[in-house]
């Protein structure tokens, strides 16, 4: 598993730097929690990019000859997605600090809940998108991904709108319930999704 992640890290190394810089810049400009949502989804897109690189090199034909199972090959991409989340969270916090203390923007929320929600949301998207990619390839799956992002973004906008920047106590508690639900859904959906992806990957080979 470590070797698969290391390989993805090497292939994404350049992308990774660009994405982190981009995220940081974006966050500094806007400092809204919505930006964190976009960033988390962008990070969730990176496993897709990694799969696209794999497909271009035909890596899986070699990988099946190595001591990996199909489950390892599928799980690797999920782990990559999860591992990218902490940097996303870190960057959003750094951006918020910069926004507040350097650019003197007012009313920055340091509540972890919106970020947690964004991360859970991205994990859920990952759970939906990866089986599709493993089945149909990254080319077709990109379109599906855009579609999902649009829906989720629309939903996020609808949910986020009524939230004021100075979150009041009742809103906060309802937010934490929502976050808890999202987190539970993310875990369950990902567990199911990993099983489906493994089956899809096998099917694509056989």
């Amino acid at each position: 598993m470590k070797s698969l992640l290391l390989k993805d890290y090497y292939t994404l190394k350049k992308n990774l730097g660009v994405v982190l810089l981009f995220m940081l810049g974006f966050c500094c400009l806007m400092s809204d929690d919505l930006v964190t949502v976009y960033c988390a989804f962008y990070a969730a897109m990176l496993p897709v990019t990694a799969i696209a690189y794999d497909e271009r090199a035909n890596w899986n034909s070699l990988a099946v000859s190595m001591p990996y199972s199909f489950r390892d090959l599928a799980l690797g991409k999920y782990l990559l997605g999860y591992l990218l989340m902490p940097p996303v969270i870190l960057v959003s916090y750094v951006a918020k600090l910069l926004s507040h203390y350097v650019f003197h923007r007012p009313a920055v929320s340091f509540s972890p809940l919106p970020i947690m929600m964004a991360v859970c949301g991205a994990a859920i998207v990952l759970a939906f998108i990866l089986p599709i990619i493993f089945r149909f390839g990254s080319e077709k799956a990109r379109l599906v991904y855009l579609f999902i992002v649009m829906i989720v973004a629309a939903a996020a906008v609808l949910f986020m709108r009524p939230l004021p920047f100075n979150v009041s106590m009742p809103a906060l508690s309802s937010l934490s319930v929502l976050t808890a639900i999202l987190a539970a859904a993310a875990v369950v959906l990902n567990l199911i999704s990993i099983r489906i992806s493994t089956a899809m990957l096998k099917r694509r080979f056989r």
């Binding site: 090497y10 292939t11 690189y53 035909n58 890596w59 070699l62 001591p67």
Partner: peptide
């Protein structure tokens, strides 16, 4: 196999580091 199928952007040294953890 008929082609090497290593990811294009990897160097031989990186291939070695990846495979060290695989085998």
């Amino acid at each position: 196999l008929d082609e090497a199928y290593f990811p294009e952007v990897l160097t031989a040294r990186q291939v070695g580091k990846v495979l060290r953890h695989a085998y």
